[in-house]
Write a protein that binds this DNA or RNA. Structure first.
Lengths: 115, 115
DNA sequence: CCGTATCCTTCCTGATACTG
DNA sequence: CAGTATCAGGAAGGATACGG
């Protein structure tokens, strides 16, 4: 199935880990330090509870974030970036910079809302 | 519908323009200079003709790329990055760098194939 | 060569309701 | 508070066939 000389492009490797726009925004939010589930939900505009849960689980499995559960009532869960997650920060920072500069342009492009 | 003090996050602005993984790979491929449709199709592993066409059209509309049609038989079309498209190069370069470094890790993470 | 037109499937996501 | 379970709608994307 695999072509003989197929060398996966490094950008593609990165995209496979970022996976979708929610995950990028989750990582971006976690740059500011540990966050509880509800905080992430509030900070990431438009994400559903289900999507947030699914993405957090998968990111945990892949080692991008760490999840710490406190045995308390009411429950408390904290999410943080792992060291691999933190290694992605430079990418996020370039995106942040670009988005900031872009807003200064005289003629904004039409932007759709999907990813 | 708009919350009073909603300030769209700059990262989200960037994500809205990148839109999906194919577009990121298209831009990445165009960094190397102008490309014909068939070249893009060959270089971007796994993309269908339909997806490539749709994404190129939308990227052209949004001003990320430029499309030049030569009135020849057989047809010839060349795609290049616009200046706004080129302004995204630093982001792509960080992704490239990250992907390259990541492959050197002793324990690769499980990578899924979707985006 | 560079597309467009259809069809079809799969995945994503939001909505909603319920629980430890 | 931080989830899980379920359902349904839509949109993205692939496969295929055909056209200028």
């Amino acid at each position: 199935m695999m072509k003989k000389n197929y060398i996966p492009c490094p950008v593609e490797t990165t995209l496979q880990l970022l996976e979708n726009r929610w995950r990028v925004l989750i990582i971006y939010d976690l740059i500011g330090g540990k966050k509880r589930f509800g905080e992430l939900k509030r900070n990431i505009s438009g994400i559903s509870q289900r999507s947030l849960t699914l993405n957090l689980r998968s990111m945990e499995e892949r080692g991008l974030i760490e999840r710490k559960v406190y045995a308390e009532i009411p429950p408390k869960v904290e999410y943080t970036l792992s060291s691999i997650g933190r290694s992605l920060i430079p990418i996020l920072k370039s995106m942040e910079r670009w988005g900031t500069d872009y807003k200064k342009l005289p003629m904004p492009l039409p932007a759709k809302h999907s990813l």
